[in-house]
Amino acid sequence: MSRIHPARWQTVEQLVDQYCESGQVPAIALQVITGETTCHYRQGRQSVEDDNGTLRDDAIFLVASITKPIVVLGVLKLLEQGELLLNDRVKQYIPEFGCAGKHGITIRHLMTHTSGLPDMLPNNRELRSAQASLSEFVRQICELTPDEPPGRIVQYQSTGIAILGELIQRITGKSAPQYLRDELFQPLEMQDTSLGVPPEWSKGGAARLERLVEIHVPPELNVEPHWDWNSPYWRGFGAPWGGLFTTPADLGKLVGMLQQQGLVLDQRLFSAQTIRQATRDQLPEIPGLSETARQGKGWGLGWQIVTRAKSEYYGDLLSDQAYGHGGATGTVLWIDPQLDAAAIILTTEPQEPHGRYLARLSNAIVAAIEV
Rank of each mutant, 00 (worst) to 15 (best):
G242L: 14
R170S: 14
P232D: 15
R181T: 11
H216I: 02
A206L: 05
Y179P: 05
V213P: 03
W234V: 12
W227R: 13
A239T: 09
R208Y: 10
E200S: 05
G204C: 02
P187S: 04
G165C: 10
L188F: 05
P232Q: 08
W227P: 00
A162Q: 15
L244A: 10
I171L: 15
W234M: 12
R170W: 12
W201H: 02
I171M: 15
P232V: 11
E166D: 15
E210H: 14
D182R: 04
W241G: 13
K174F: 14
F237W: 05
W227V: 03
H226I: 13
F237R: 01
Q169W: 06
P218I: 09
W227I: 03
E200L: 03
P240H: 07
P198C: 01
E189D: 14
E183L: 02
P218Q: 09
P218L: 10
S175W: 08
I215D: 03
P218H: 07
L195D: 01
G238M: 09
D192S: 11
P199L: 00
E200W: 07
P199V: 01
D228A: 12
I161A: 12
D228W: 03
F185M: 02
L167H: 08
G236V: 00
L164A: 04
T193W: 04
R208V: 06
G165W: 10
A239P: 04
L180C: 06
E183T: 12
E183K: 13
R170K: 15
P219L: 05
P177I: 09
E166G: 08
L212A: 02
K174P: 03
G173W: 08
V223A: 08
W234N: 10
Q178G: 01
W201T: 07
F185V: 03
L188P: 05
S231V: 14
A206F: 09
G243F: 09
Q169M: 11
T193R: 02
Q191H: 13
G238P: 10
A206I: 08
E220H: 15
W229T: 04
P187D: 05
L209E: 15
E183Q: 13
R170L: 11
L184D: 02
V213S: 01
G205A: 10
T172M: 07
L209S: 14
V213K: 00
P198D: 00
G196F: 03
V217K: 01
L221C: 07
L180T: 04
H216V: 04
G243E: 07
T193Y: 02
A207M: 04
G236A: 09
P177M: 05
E183Y: 09
L184G: 03
M190G: 10
A162S: 15
S175V: 03
E220T: 12
T172N: 12
S194P: 00
D182S: 05
M190H: 10
G196R: 04
G243M: 10
P219K: 09
W241I: 03
L164N: 09
V197F: 00
A239F: 13
L209M: 13
Q186I: 12
E189K: 12
A207F: 00
A239M: 15
E200F: 04
M190P: 10
